[in-house]
């Protein structure tokens, strides 16, 4: 997994709430057996019409906005557990998603793929959308070590929460499996006394 320390980037605003993982990557594009290439179909049905032509009103099709931070409204990533949603965002080039609320499974999947979910207050989110509206080139800085997100050139700055274990993993590029494999003795000992019916 790629390390994550700090990230400064312009952002892509997606002013939609309850973005579900079926929108992020529709089921008919889940047929691959590898992790690569899902970015091509990220937000497929919002991004392209049925003939495959880009829909000009969708944000990923607008030259105005670019960057490796996606900002969306409340309850991002709800629905299906497909990790392909996180893979698609990463494959497209996103390194962080900002929202006022994340669905559980998506949040876990994102963290397992070096994609940082940054949960901010509804007020901060609103201010962020307003700043991007004013100037699409507004850079935002996310500092994982300090657990801060800051809209550059303004006094808008907020702290965000992340489990200390997950933070350590992202900062060092470790994953859960490395950690669990190092605990195999404990797992085997547990199995000795684990009674099942």
């Amino acid at each position: 997994m790629e390390k994550f320390k700090t990230l400064t980037s312009t952002v892509v605003p997606l002013a939609v709430q309850d973005v579900d993982t079926d929108q992020i990557i529709p089921a008919r594009f889940l047929k691959a057996t590898t992790r690569e290439g899902f970015g091509e179909n990220l937000f497929r049905d919002w991004r392209y019409d049925q003939e495959g032509n880009p829909k000009p009103d969708f944000v990923l099709n607008q030259n105005t906005y670019s960057g490796s931070i996606l900002v969306a409204e409340d309850n991002f990533g709800c629905g299906s557990s497909r990790e392909h949603a996180a893979w698609a965002l990463v494959d497209y080039g996103f390194r962080a998603v900002v929202s006022s609320f994340f669905a559980d499974i998506f949040k876990g999947n994102a963290l397992n793929n070096g994609l940082l979910p940054v949960q901010v207050s509804p007020e901060f989110l609103k201010a962020m959308f307003a700043e991007i509206n004013k100037d699409a080139n507004t850079p935002v800085t996310i500092n994982l070590e300090e657990q801060t997100i800051e809209i550059d050139g303004t006094d808008l700055k907020e702290n965000f929460e992340i489990s200390s274990y997950k933070k350590m993993c992202l900062l060092n590029g470790y994953d859960d499996i490395d950690f669990l494999l190092s605990n195999k003795d404990k797992i085997e000992a547990f199995e000795q006394s684990h009674q099942e019916f």
Binding site: I105, G108, N109, Y165, N183
Partner: peptide
């Protein structure tokens, strides 16, 4: 439900690291 990275975790260790 779990993501595919966690499917791999369970395959590797029969455990999950969870909150």
């Amino acid at each position: 439900g779990i993501g595919t990275s966690q499917v791999e975790q369970v395959m590797a260790t029969q455990c999950l690291l969870v909150q």
